[in-house]
Design a protein around this nucleic acid. Sequence first.
DNA 1: TTGTAAGCGTTATCAC
DNA 2: GTGATAACGCTTACAA
Lengths: 344, 344
Amino acid sequence: MSKKPTTSQDVAKLAGVSRTTVSFVLNDVKGIQISGDTRRKVLKAAEELKYVPNAAAQALASQRAKIIGLILTRSPHHIATDAFITQIVNGLLGVIHQHDMRLLFDIIEPEHQRKAYLQMARAKRIDGILLSGPRSDDDALKILGEEGFPTVLIGQLPGTGFCSVDVDNRAAAKNAVTHLVNLGHDRIACITNAQPSYTASADRLAGYKDALDEAGLHFDESLVRYGDFDVESGYVQMFSLLEGGISFTSAFVASDTVALGAKAAIRDHGLNIPHDIALVGFDDLPFSQYTDPPLTTVHLPVVELAQQGCNMLIQILQNEHPPSQHTILSTKLVIRKSCGANQL
Amino acid sequence: MSKKPTTSQDVAKLAGVSRTTVSFVLNDVKGIQISGDTRRKVLKAAEELKYVPNAAAQALASQRAKIIGLILTRSPHHIATDAFITQIVNGLLGVIHQHDMRLLFDIIEPEHQRKAYLQMARAKRIDGILLSGPRSDDDALKILGEEGFPTVLIGQLPGTGFCSVDVDNRAAAKNAVTHLVNLGHDRIACITNAQPSYTASADRLAGYKDALDEAGLHFDESLVRYGDFDVESGYVQMFSLLEGGISFTSAFVASDTVALGAKAAIRDHGLNIPHDIALVGFDDLPFSQYTDPPLTTVHLPVVELAQQGCNMLIQILQNEHPPSQHTILSTKLVIRKSCGANQL
DNA sequence: TTGTAAGCGTTATCAC
DNA sequence: GTGATAACGCTTACAA
C-alpha cells in the first residue's frame, strides 16, 4: 500500500551525510573511524524513518544472501512424521539468529527435483547448505562438492570431502543390541529406520550385526526388516515379523518413531512389552520417555548436531578455510522400562 | 572456488542476442513474440553454460523475492516437541514449489525480538507472511496489518483485517466434550493446549464450557489446568489434577501432545485408561492412533490448513485483491479407544 | 573522517 | 521481434 519504502538515500539526506557514511554506520564497518556525532545523526535519522535496508540490494552488492539452507532429502510424506526436524530447526535457529542470518527450509524428494538445491546454490539464494540425511546416490550433492559450495552434512557420506557432524551410528547400535544380549536375549529381531541407501540406516544395521558377532550369535536374515521413517512402517514390519513364524524375544528398532508402530503391532498381537518382547529404540525423541512402557533407546544429541553443524558452516562461510572436519558427537543408551526390570 | 558465475550476459553472447532477449525467453514473457529459432538458441546456450539467474539480482529488479515466510510465535523449547510443524511445512512446500517459490522458516519468541518479522517484511526479504499461532498481544503483527503487508493467519485474530484459515476450535472442543458427556461422564477435567493468550487455547476452553452448559453440568474451575504445548506440561498438569483431591472420571486435553503426557501421569498413578479415566485429545497427530490405548481425538486438517493458507497468500500476492476471507475448515471427532468401548 | 562513483545481475521501458 | 539503456538499492574501493 505505502508508496515509499525508505532508502539509504533518504536516511543520508535527513542526516545530512552521504550514503556511504550511512552504510558505514549501520554496518558498523571496522577500520573506519566515524565521529560519534555523525554516527548519532545517522542512527537517529534511520530510526526516525524506520529505515530497513533492502535485503535483495544488500545481497546483490555484498554477494551474501545471509541465508542458510536446510535441506532434507525425504519424501514429503515422511517429513510429516519426523519428530526430529523440529529439534534440528530449533538448534539451528539459535545459531543462525546469532549471526543475523535466516533459515531457508526445503525438502527434496529423492526421486524428483534433485537439482533443486543445486539451483539455489548457484543462484546464490543461499550462502551455504546444511544437508540432513545425505544419500550415496545423490548426484546433485556431488556436483555441489565439485563446485566447492559451502556445505555441511548432518550425517556422513564416506569418500567425499564434505564437512560433517554425526554420531557413530554403528557403535551406538551395537551398544544397544549388546544391552539386549546382556539381558539374556539370543533371538533379537531388527527393524531399521529406513532403507539402506541412507547411510545412517546401513550403519545401524551393521552395528546390529557387530553385536551379534561379538556375542557369537548367528545372524538370521529373516529377523531383519526395513522400516521407512514413519510409524506405520514400524507397525507393518513388526506385524510381518510376528506373523513370520520365527520366534524372537526382543527387537532393536533403529528409530523411536518406527518403534512406536512396532509397539502397537506387538500390543495388537496380545503380546506384552517387555515380558514377551523387549524393545530398544533409537533417537530418544521427546515423547519416548512418555510411552507405555517408557522406551529404552539410544539418545541422539540432535540439537547439538544441528548447532555444531551450523557453526561449522558459518565458520566455512567466514574463513574460507574449510576446516574439513568430521565431528562425531557421542550417544548414550538411555535405559527405561521397555527391556524389563531395571538393570544397572 | 570457481571464479566465474555465468551471467545472462554470457548467455546472450553465446546465443548471439541481447540480454533482453535472454530475459524474455527464460521468463517466458507473455505478449512478446520470439522466433522459435532464437528461442532455441537462447535455451541451448543457457543449458550449455549451466546458467542460473542470480536470485538477488532478480529480486532487486523485479521487487519480488519469491520467498514466503512461515513464522511461528513460540519459544524454541516448545517447537522441539511440536509434531504439528512438520505437517504444516509439508502442506506448505507442496504449494510453494508449484509457484516456484521458497520457504523461509522462522520462530519468533513471544517475549523477544517481536519485530524480527517486521524487519523481514520491510526489507522485502519475503513477499508474504504465513503466521501460525497469532497472539492478541502482538504489536508487530498489528503494524504489519497497517502497512498492508501480505499476511495470512493460520489461526485467527478477531477484530483484525487479516485473512485467515482456521477451524472452529470452540465447536470442535464442545463436540469432543459432549462425546464424553454422552458416555455418561459428569466430572470432566480439562487441560488446555497452551496459555489462554493463544486464541486457539481460549476457544477450546470456551468449547469445553459450552458442552458443560448444554449438559447442565456445573463448571468447576478446579478441574481446569493450562497446558504449555509440550508433553511434559501434560504430565505435570494431569499429575496436579490427580493429586488435587477432586474426583473426575474423564478429561478433555486440548492437544494430543499434551495428552500424551497426561496419559503417562495417569498410568504412573496406577490408573487405567479408559477404565478409570476416559481421555479425549485434540489434533490427531500421526502417532495418536498408535498410542496405547489409541487416542480418541479431534482431527485437525493441518495439511489442508497450510495449503489453503498458502494459496490464499499467493492469491493476494498476485491479484492485489485481498479477498479478505476467513476460511473455516471442518474438524472431525475420531473415536478410538481411550474413552471406552466402541460407540457408534 | 566523509564523499564520489563504479559496480552487483536482473528486469523492464522504450525506441528501432 | 530485438536491442540499448535506465532503474533497482546497496556495498565498497578510491578520492578528497
